[in-house]
Every structure is written in structure tokens, then in C-alpha cells.
């Protein structure tokens, strides 16, 4: 049994193989890898005798499931009313353009995952960008770039995945 198969077996037995516990199983799977790798979803589907298509239906319905690996850093930009009025839209555009990343996506080099959210409750500091939990206030497109360009990119092993 490969490492991956063992992991699926452990997770499935944790819930007595009950298909109704699919969501917690997928959460556990995501907790291991940071996202839901395709091969692992297929293994889980086969193990539960449930179609892969149904697992994807669940995975795409809930915002908390991720089908792609997370970036090394987390960048959250507030585009709530106040931040937006103070130029968050332009900041968002600049980030998307400069780093080739869509809202909800991860940069091609895996540097960071970018999320645009509605109001983080810090309107006095608008526009607000949160990087790895640290708040940056009154950002401009240029200052945002400065922060993001300064993020360190660690060389790390590719997500260990055997081929199918």
C-alpha cells in the first residue's frame, strides 16, 4: 500500500467508511495536503464506491474546499464598501495584473494565494490588505506592490504525488 492509499484508508476508517461522512473525510484530506489533490479524490471516491463527479460537486459547493495547492503566503484584500471607495478596486486590479492571479487563486509560482473579501471590520484603516495575518493600512497600488514583492519565496519540494 502506498503512502497515499494508507492515508485514504486511515481517513475512511476514522468514519467507519460511512459515505454520509464524506464532508469530514474531505476536510481531513485537505488538512493533510492543504488542498484536495485529484488523485486522492479519485482514491477516496473509489474507496467509498461513490462517483468522482459527486466528490467534485461537494468540493466546489463549499468555499472552504480547495482543488489547487495554497500559496506560501496568504494575501487578503478588503474590497468592502469603504475600502472600495478608497481605491481597493485599483489595488486588486494591479495585483491581478502584476502577479497573474485571480481572486481566489494562487500565483503561478506558488508565492501567495490571493483573496478579495468584503469588509474586515477595519474601515478606519481603509484600504486594508492582510498578509499572513499582518494588517497593512491605507495601502495604495504601489505600496501593496512593495509589500508583495518583498515576500520571500522558499524553494520547496513539489507536492509529493505519485503518478496515477
Amino acid at each position: 500500500m502506498t503512502v497515499q492509499e494508507k492515508l485514504i484508508e486511515t481517513i475512511v476508517s476514522r468514519y467507519d467508511g460511512e459515505v454520509g461522512m464524506l464532508i469530514p473525510m474531505m476536510q481531513d484530506l485537505q488538512a493533510e495536503s492543504g488542498y484536495l489533490p485529484v488523485d486522492q479524490l479519485r482514491r477516496l471516491a473509489a474507496r467509498l464506491d461513490t462517483p468522482v463527479s459527486r466528490l467534485y460537486a461537494v468540493a466546489t459547493f463549499y468555499a472552504s474546499f480547495r482543488l489547487a495547492p495554497k500559496g506560501q503566503h496568504e494575501v487578503t484584500l478588503c474590497v468592502g464598501t469603504v475600502c472600495y471607495l478608497k481605491g481597493a478596486g485599483r489595488i486588486s486590479e494591479r495585483i491581478q495584473e502584476e502577479f497573474q492571479v485571480e481572486a481566489g487563486g494562487t500565483t503561478p509560482d506558488g508565492l501567495f494565494t490571493f483573496q478579495a473579501v468584503n469588509c474586515v471590520g477595519a474601515c478606519a484603516l481603509a484600504p486594508v490588505m492582510i498578509v499572513d495575518g499582518q494588517y497593512h493600512d491605507k495601502v495604495t497600488p504601489d505600496s501593496a506592490m512593495e509589500v508583495l514583492r518583498g515576500l520571500p519565496l522558499e524553494q520547496r519540494q513539489e507536492q509529493q504525488e505519485t503518478k496515477t
Binding site: 462517483p51 459527486r54 467534485y56 460537486a57 466546489t60
Partner: peptide
């Protein structure tokens, strides 16, 4: 065949094969 299912949520929901 169990090939297609609902994908996504809300206005973005569609009928699809597994993405990719």
C-alpha cells in the same frame, strides 16, 4: 455512468464533468 454533476454554488452553478 455517473460522469456529470452539479458544480459550484449559487449563480455560478453549472452541470459539468469533474473540472479539468
Amino acid at each position: 455512468s455517473r460522469a456529470i454533476d452539479f458544480l459550484g454554488r449559487g449563480f455560478d452553478t453549472c452541470i459539468s464533468l469533474p473540472p479539468g
